[in-house]
Write a protein that binds this DNA or RNA. Structure first.
Ligand SMILES: [Zn+2]
Ligand SMILES: [Zn+2]
Ligand SMILES: [Zn+2]
Ligand SMILES: [Zn+2]
Lengths: 149, 149
DNA sequence: AATAAAATGTTATGTTATAACATAACCTAT
DNA sequence: ATAGGTTATGTTATAACATAACATTTTATT
């Protein structure tokens, strides 16, 4: 079984466990992100589904589907790029830690990495010290990939 | 002299040193950000200049002016919010370190804090290990301020 | 089959950002 | 002072990203 099928199967199982349904369109959108080697915008996903599956999913629906996939922790929104990426750990058993994304500003390739617990704790401390409250400790960092650099 | 005047005077001096000009419109946009207690979008700055100075600056010009102010390190763009904020250190003598922005997702108030050197080094190492190259180590974190929490 | 809930479609509009070209304001050198 | 180059701003159009409101279809439950 190839990687895509494996990921989709995991995703399906995960949704089932949560009492949610991974419909065909949701599968198509998720496939687009899993297959892509870079982050995609909602509108790029519309084009992808049209091209790959001859499925014309309106942008509005893609946004809703992305919200759903995010809520199922299958997809991450990259706020600094206004793009979306499949979680790199869908098929992993381990719990999903605080995600950190290195995003190539030129070509939108993304690496989902983990930073050390101590660094996370330091960052959290600065937030607490400033009397703010963390919503999500997700970090997104503008980079250039090896290719583009 | 109040805070706003002091900041503008510093900004003017800083531009002069760099052979750049802080024109009236640039001053107006910068004033908007300095006076605001929260991050503003380009379009909100259009409205501000209209209200505060009866200056109708087209959105296109505000974007150009924001680019200029950013290049002079007087303003930061908050990529996760698509908004802009005056640098908190315009009147400071010390060099500007790597900034970390805590952004209230509800009301857009922003705190510009400094990250410890050790944290920065760890982040840089993570990036290097992933074979990526840092563009700007600026960190932006979605939070809730004490007010909104 | 009737009903309710969930998913998707449709249309309209709001928000953020840039491209391309025109004009105005401002130096600087003769 | 003025001609010519540079910088700043104006104007118009459009691209790109995102949400609101309401209608229809599909699915699950009784
Ligand atoms: Zn992930
Ligand atoms: Zn790249
Ligand atoms: Zn700053
Ligand atoms: Zn707030």
């Amino acid at each position: 079984m190839n990687k895509l099928d494996a990921v989709i199967k995991h995703a399906e199982q995960q949704c089932k466990t949560n009492g949610a349904r991974l419909t065909d369109k949701r599968k198509q959108v998720l496939s687009g992100l899993v297959q892509s080697n870079k982050a995609l915008s909602a509108y790029e996903l519309v084009d992808y589904c049209e091209t790959a599956f001859s499925a014309r999913i309106p942008a509005m629906s893609v946004y809703r589907i992305l919200d759903f996939l995010e809520s199922e922790h299958l997809v991450h929104k990259l706020n600094i790029a206004n793009k979306y990426v499949a979680c790199a750990h869908i098929s992993c058993d381990h719990a999903h830690g605080t995600p950190q994304f290195l995003i190539c500003k030129k070509c939108s390739t993304v690496k989902e990495v983990s930073i050390s617990q101590s660094t996370i704790l330091e960052l959290k401390q600065t937030v607490t010290d400033a009397d703010y409250q963390l919503i999500s400790p997700q970090l997104e960092i503008n980079c250039l990939c090896a290719q583009c650099a």
